[in-house]
Design a protein around this nucleic acid. Structure first.
Lengths: 215, 215
DNA sequence: CTTATAGTGTTACCAAAGTAACTCATTTAA
DNA sequence: TTAAATGAGTTACTTTGGTAACACTATAAG
């Protein structure tokens, strides 16, 4: 536990909890640390959610594989993000999607009832937690909004415009393979490839193996 | 306010709040009541979310209309359900979808900061609230799971199997028009019509104007 | 009663996107 | 360094589902 003590105390969520009380819980071994190697499964779809998980280090992808084996990447989470926050207190607290470690990942686990006590104990922690949960839900709504019944071109443009803002450039560096981009949009790789070629022919974009530029 | 006093005190969410304290807030006029006629707009996409809303009576549909005018019904909420709970404490608290009153609807509004005080004040209220919010998020996840990149047939079957459990019968009564079913699935009415005909030809279902039976 | 309006079914036509098969390039492991 | 695996682009073929136009029915308003 001790090697992660600083990491724990510096997560955005736990920073909002009174420090001396946090120390008490850390000394008391109330939190569990769990490490996952790259590409390891963290949760299977259908697993019971019993703990809130805070990502101390690494990257986690939330994915769904349907009956025909098609992969859809719903979201990716990094340092400070939480997993299970939207699920934990549900009447049906089973993960609707699988999550896997994209990188070597260290996760802090807080048991549901302990978390509830912490929430009831500290208003500032409660407020930060509610913010986190709201923001995570927003991602789901956003996925629905931008990816249900949209053409591949619309999905691609939505992704590019979002990344363009983040990266503050018309030239968007793809930090993933085209295959991964296809999975994130939820389409076949060949279909993405075809659509990118069409968009280039239409003069909307240019692209190479590692970036796409909006014209 | 008084005509709704009993209604307010009997909502699932507020029943978990200490009654004498609830009475105090009711007397103090801390809650606002808002009525909407059938088909009235409650929130436009992009509206700022400032209050938690509890449906005292009626029905609310959450819908999204895209640039081309296509409608997608995300969810329908009734008595006791909440609106805005997943949004209120977000850094970006704007409704991602529109909501309209499907029936004449009465809504109780609790201002964000007051709600936060109530949550911090009563652990039982906090727990019920967290449950509600989790369950609402579950609906979004479910939509994603079952409706993103699915064929019309898969969407229809998912809907029928869900309703079959609820209604406890292989013959599912449609409590909506086929047009509304098409909107809920997010496809054209004619495409739904065509697919239902195909499914009948394939011996999967039979249907008439008011019901569909799984074979 | 009768008229307008909304719901429903059907179909020809077309565009979007999945499938599969092949090629070539790049990265990883032995 | 060589073999194997993974990523990437291309294309013919096919399926799915949106569009539009039309006919028929049921319902609600006058």
């Amino acid at each position: 536990m001790s090697p992660y003590q600083n990491l724990i105390k510096n997560t955005v969520l736990l920073r909002s909890f009174p420090p001396e009380k946090l120390d008490f819980h850390i000394q008391n071994n109330d939190f569990r640390i769990h490490s996952y190697n790259r590409n390891c499964l963290i949760h299977l779809e259908g697993d019971l959610c019993t703990h809130l998980e805070i990502i101390l280090r690494g990257a986690v992808a939330v994915e769904r594989i349907d009956e025909s084996g098609n992969l859809l990447t719903i979201a990716e989470f990094y340092n400070d993000d939480i997993l299970g926050g939207n699920l934990l207190f549900s009447k049906n607290p089973y993960f609707p999607m699988a999550s896997i470690a994209r990188e070597d990942t260290v996760i802090l686990e807080i048991e549901k009832n302990l978390l509830f006590d912490l929430l009831a104990e500290s208003p500032s922690f409660l407020r930060t937690y509610l913010e986190f949960v709201s923001d995570r839900t927003f991602i789901l709504g956003d996925k629905l909004k931008h990816y249900v019944n949209k053409s591949i071109r619309e999905c691609v443009l939505n992704y590019l415009e979002y990344e363009s803002k983040i990266q503050n450039s018309r030239q968007i560096k793809l930090n993933m393979t085209k295959k991964a981009l296809a999975d994130r949009i939820g389409v076949q790789r060949t279909s993405l490839s075809r659509e990118l070629a069409k968009m280039r022919d239409d003069g909307i974009i240019v692209f190479d193996s590692s970036s796409i530029t909006l014209l």
